[in-house]
């Protein structure tokens, strides 16, 4: 189906700003990455760090007060921002699809779930016969563990998790090359979540589509992804293989904080820990590294310039002190 050597998605120095009464807020700042066919890239970061904005930018769906002001985004080698409206419409369901953070965006409240499924096939795969469409829909529902009787339900008659699962099924309905999933499982219990993630991985291995998986949950991200990108204040502060987040390795201080606040299962009573300090203000960025005010190892040099991603073993870290992070980790591990 696709050339397995060329990346499906190339994001090249992408920068997105929002305009509001207070001026510009940079929600995605100079981010670059590629996603190969069959790969799952996990993006993790705290609330408001720009994950959804990045996803919208890839879909060319930014709201009117935002713009991709620098950089390039290519899907299958095609610059997304060079497409006409018509091409975009086709491109969005057939080549790239998205599970939005809110299932409301995908689901129309006044139509039944079945109607909306059939509509997708009617518009984008008109050649398919009625019977074939019906079969495909049942198959998709089975995948997300929804009983076919719910095809007759309206979205408000479904639970939060069921709506989310329907949105997932719709996103993969047309076998796109790339699926962007923005917090797709926040309303799912652990059992169903596990099953669906397994299913996504299974069909993903068969169909070979690429996935960008966005979540605030590092535990989930490192479980599902092949590669991980950690975002903070609109920037990529760490990238690398998922393994790096499962086993002792050098990490950006922010990632370290995230890892340390993961609940541990082998204690009697969980302690919930956080990273001290408050989230950054995107509209009034500070000089140098954005994590500086909350960082335990911050030094005066950190305020000079924002650090760039530099190699450490199997990953990259954007911290002024990569060397000692790597060394400190040896002591740690």
């Amino acid at each position: 189906m696709t050339d397995t050597t060329k990346p499906v998605l190339t994001v090249d120095h992408a920068t997105v700003v929002y305009e509001s009464d207070d001026g510009l807020a940079c929600a995605v700042n100079d981010i670059s990455f590629t996603v190969a066919p069959g790969q799952i890239l996990g993006i993790v970061g705290e609330s408001g760090c720009g994950k959804s904005t990045l996803a919208y930018a890839i879909m060319h769906l930014l709201p009117a007060n935002a713009a991709l002001v620098e950089g390039k985004i290519q899907v299958q080698g095609v610059n997304v921002y060079r497409l006409t409206e018509d091409e975009l419409r086709r491109f969005r369901w057939q080549h790239v699809s998205m599970v939005f953070q809110s299932a409301l965006v995908t689901l129309n409240p006044v139509l039944t779930v079945g109607h909306q499924f059939r509509e997708i096939f009617r518009i984008h795969a008109p050649a398919l016969s009625r019977g074939a469409v019906g079969e495909r829909i049942e198959e998709l529902l089975e995948l997300v563990r929804i009983h076919p009787q719910h095809l007759r339900s309206y979205p408000h008659e479904l639970s939060g998790g069921m709506r989310q699962r329907i949105a997932i099924a719709m996103a993969i309905a047309l076998d796109p090359d790339l699926v962007i999933m923005d917090e797709p499982t926040t309303a799912l219990d652990a059992v169903v979540q596990r099953e669906i993630l397994e299913e996504i991985r299974r069909i993903q291995a068969i169909k070979h589509f690429a996935v960008v998986f966005i979540s605030h949950d590092l535990r989930l991200i490192r479980y599902i992804s092949s590669a991980v990108m950690v975002m903070y204040a609109g920037r990529a502060v760490e990238t690398g293989s998922a393994d790096r987040f499962l086993h002792p390795a050098a990490h950006h201080p922010y990632t370290r904080g995230l890892l340390d606040s993961l609940p541990e299962w082998n204690v009697d009573r969980f302690q919930m820990r956080g990273i001290p300090g408050s989230p950054p203000d995107l509209a009034h960025p500070i000089s140098g590294c954005a994590f500086r005010p909350r960082c335990p190892i911050a030094r005066s040099e950190c305020s000079l310039a924002p650090p760039t991603l530099r190699d450490v073993g199997a990953g990259k870290i954007a911290c002024i002190d990569v060397q000692s992070l790597a060394k400190g980790n040896e002591a740690h591990g």
Binding site: A64, T106, N108, H115, F117, M170
Partner: peptide
């Protein structure tokens, strides 16, 4: 103006605007 968009596919084509009431 009842819900601005029709079925799923076209609704997804314009999500952020749904909110700008």
């Amino acid at each position: 103006v009842t819900h601005g968009a029709s079925a799923g596919p076209s609704a997804a084509a314009n999500p952020p605007m749904r909110h700008t009431q």
